[in-house]
Write a protein that binds this DNA or RNA. Structure first.
Length: 516
RNA sequence: GGCGCUAUCGUCUAGGGGUUAGGACGGAAGAUUCUCAAUCUUCAAACCCGGGUUCGAUUCCCGGUAGCGCUACCA
């Protein structure tokens, strides 16, 4: 353990890791942890490591592994090295037994007790199983040899009155009396390492220099410091991140809060990964200069551990259907399959995330945005090619907040036949059906002989309005509704230009029919 | 119960012994364009409570309260 097995460990720059346990989908809190680690590595020219902490065979699932990779792939932040704890078991056991040999751990033959932890009960703190720490080595060896199952526990130096301490980059100096730390397990009775042991053994072996993780591990860190010490290595530096919580203040969970906490939900809802990353970065971290919208490079440049906050941050989402705890399908990790079919309304998400997404969308080049919109429209069944999408994109770029909005903002560009709409919509403001009809007939007449370019369309339609003695707005609205099927749409001339003369005239013709 | 962490507008946050407590999202009002957006302007909105320390605390200290985390042979 003192000699790192990984060759890259000899290089320089910080080595950080993201170590999810594949027991659920990748949720937004984990994603943020990954992002902060990645940012730290990239800012400092270090190494980003992905390590699957899969020592809990009971709870690991393949679906979870693929959900994590799905989410990570979407974020688009690459890692440099990849490991699986389940392939490193020998190392973990070696480290555990070395600690035992030093007398810093002991066998505990007490049968495993399940989840009867009465955390709110009035019983004092549990520290160890009576008798077990004092078992003589001979007795311990004898019972083990006899085949009696046991867990290996760390022998916390409790009676020495010693204080365990470490410095956290976000929370400062942390001190805790060893007397308050229980004899935690290193190895389970089935020989599998516990999280604490495996994590520390691997962190040491992989020469992790900085551990950046959720604050739920802050108090576990005292145990980790003890393990590093027992293993004879210097502990890495620590930086704990404030937790991401739901609007009700409780920690994010799929059981309780539904798909809004899963990364793939954001992907499926039409978030840009760069916007999602931007949003997550602003939760629990601040560049301290009032910047909000930031590109990936700006984030890399600005990121530092000093900007990390200490208070939990709420992800201000609205629960779908008032919480989905009772949904039977939401229980298992269904990889990337959306648990709630259909679309997620934008109000489902933290509106700042939605706003940032819109900001990033507006900042995208037309070609880029267009290419991202195309597959979404196609998957929804619209017949579109990239040339058409390229023409439509500038018209909707400032009108969509989520990529999926292309479906509702630009649908009329993609269909042959407009879905039915209320003919009353054709009536211009302060006008009547007669005016609507006059407008549409006039439009059909003049448009027939107009070139479908912005300028000529502008001229001819304004001139027509004047001729009819009505306002431009009164002229435009019936036409807009006739070609778009609704009142709210992109600017008229550009729209007509993209739609083309044939489609425009056909739709106006249909509108003339409907208005009477 | 024990141990630990935290506390600025509804939300994300900046700030910090003396400030009109700043920005952003969201909200309201207005300007603007052919509608909708976008954009611009304006407005409402916060230092958890109580004690200290101090000439002066939102800021520093203590206590309370509240929230969260850990307290498994989960991670």
């Amino acid at each position: 353990m003192s000699s790192p097995s990984h060759p890259a460990a000899s290089g320089q720059g910080p080595r950080v890791r993201f170590a999810p346990s594949p027991t659920g989908f990748l949720h937004v809190g984990s994603a943020r942890t990954f992002i902060f680690n990645w940012l730290y590595a990239r800012h400092n020219g270090g190494t980003m490591i992905l390590r699957l902490d899969d020592t809990d065979v009971e709870r690991n699932t393949e679906a979870s592994v693929s959900s994590i990779f799905d989410g990570l792939r979407w974020l688009g932040l690459a890692w440099d090295e990849e490991y699986k704890q389940s392939e490193r078991l020998k190392l973990h056991r070696k480290v555990a037994w070395a600690i035992f040999e030093k007398g810093l751990a002991y066998r505990d033959f007490t049968p495993a007790h399940a989840g009867d932890s009465d955390k709110s009960g009035a019983q004092g703190a549990w520290l160890f199983n009576p008798g077990m720490p004092d078992l003589s080595r001979a007795e311990s060896d004898r019972r083990a040899a006899a085949g009696e199952p046991f867990a290996l526990r760390y022998r916390v130096p409790r009676e020495t009155g010693r204080q365990v301490q470490f410095v956290d980059a976000a929370y400062g100096v942390q001190v805790k009396a060893a007397a308050d730390i229980e004899d935690f397990a290193l190895l389970r009775s089935d020989g599998m390492p516990t999280y604490h042991l495996a994590s520390c053994a691997d962190d040491a072996d992989l020469s992790i220099s900085h551990i950046i993780r959720g604050q739920d591990h802050l108090t576990n860190t005292f145990k980790h410091v003890l393990i590093f010490e027992a293993a004879g290595v210097n502990p890495p530096q620590f930086a704990h991140l404030p937790l991401l919580v739901a609007p009700d203040g409780t920690k994010l969970s799929k059981r309780k809060h539904g798909p809004v906490v899963s990364v793939t939900t954001y992907r499926d809802a039409g978030f840009l990964p760069e916007a999602f990353i931007n949003f997550l970065c602003l939760l629990g971290w601040s560049p301290k200069n009032d910047r909000e919208k930031m590109t990936q490079q700006e984030l890399v440049d600005a990121f530092s551990l000093e900007g990390i906050n200490r208070a939990n941050a709420v992800v201000n989402f609205k629960e779908l259907n008032g919480g989905r705890a009772s949904s039977p399908v939401s229980q298992d990790v269904g990889a990337s399959v959306p648990l709630v079919q259909g679309v997620y309304p934008e109000e489902t998400f933290d509106l700042k995330a939605v706003w940032l997404n819109a900001e990033h969308i507006r900042g995208l080049a037309v070609e880029d945005l267009s290419a991202r919109l195309l597959p979404i429209a196609r998957d929804a069944g619209f017949m579109v090619d990239s040339a058409k999408m390229l023409k439509v994109t500038p018209l909707i770029r400032e009108r969509i907040k989520l990529l999926r909005d292309v479906l509702t903002a630009a649908d009329f560009f993609f269909v042959d036949q407009l879905p039915p709409y209320d003919p009353a919509e054709l009536i211009p403001p302060k006008g009547d059906a007669v005016m609507a009809k006059k407008v549409l007939e006039k439009a059909r007449e003049v448009l027939e002989k107009t070139e479908f370019k912005h300028e000529p369309l502008d001229q001819v339609l304004r001139a027509s309005a004047q001729e009819l003695g009505i306002k431009a707005g009164q002229m435009f609205q019936p036409i807009r509704v006739a070609v778009c099927g609704r009142k709210n749409a992109p600017p008229l001339f550009e729209t007509l230009e993209v739609l083309g003369k044939e489609t425009t005239l056909a739709r106006i013709g249909q509108a003339v029919q409907r208005v009477q």
